[in-house]
């Protein structure tokens, strides 16, 4: 597949989360990550787009979006961690798992993955206090019964932050 110059974040994400994909398409997933790193407002735009896809009623679209999110967290560094670590984004993940919002309509597969991601970030990103706040609130509410087992490949090792576009 030829690389498209100037593809937007939205375009990359639509391809990476297309419900017609037979399997996860890493070319588009990494393309999305790379595009985030290229754009000054990449992380801010990306989390908004991801939140929307993660809330998709189509399970496969949501699952792929979570895979993209996970890849972004590994590849886009601190700028993205900061955006994910805001309640503005975390609240959208909370809505997915909470019965007060969308939790009753969302599949267990999606909810489980959200909780695994949140928990893994509480360990890997201790400086992002809001992630811990959000996760512990889910526990207090009984939405998370116990800490999930984290697969070895989920140990998030943040990559070094990309060169900042502005000082």
């Amino acid at each position: 597949m030829a690389e498209a110059e100037g593809e937007s974040l939205e375009s990359w994400l639509n391809k990476a989360t297309n419900p017609s994909n037979r399997q996860e398409d890493w070319e588009y997933i990494i393309g999305f990550c790379d595009q985030i790193n290229k754009e000054l407002e990449g992380p801010q735009i990306a989390v908004r787009l991801l939140a929307h896809k993660i809330q998709s009623p189509q399970e496969w679209e949501a699952v792929q979006a979570l895979t993209v999110l996970e890849a972004c967290m590994k590849n886009c560094g601190r700028r993205l961690h900061n955006e994910v670590g805001k309640f503005r984004f975390l609240n959208e993940l909370i809505k997915v798992v909470s019965p007060k919002y969308f939790g009753d309509r969302v599949s267990e597969k999606v909810k489980t993955k959200v909780i695994e991601l949140l928990f893994s970030w509480t360990l890997a990103l201790p400086e992002e206090a809001k992630i811990k706040d959000a996760y512990h609130m889910l526990k207090r509410q009984g939405i998370v019964q116990s800490d999930p087992p984290i697969p070895m490949d989920r140990t998030l090792i943040p990559s070094p932050p990309p060169r900042p576009k502005n000082p």
Binding site: F87, R88, L90, I94, K95, S98, Y101, K130, D133, Q141
Partner: peptide, 15 residues
């Protein structure tokens, strides 16, 4: 500045 006010407005969802 802009970031500080963003910080102030960033609240956990009421449950």
């Amino acid at each position: 500045l802009g970031e500080e006010s963003e910080e102030r407005d960033d609240h956990l969802l009421p449950m």
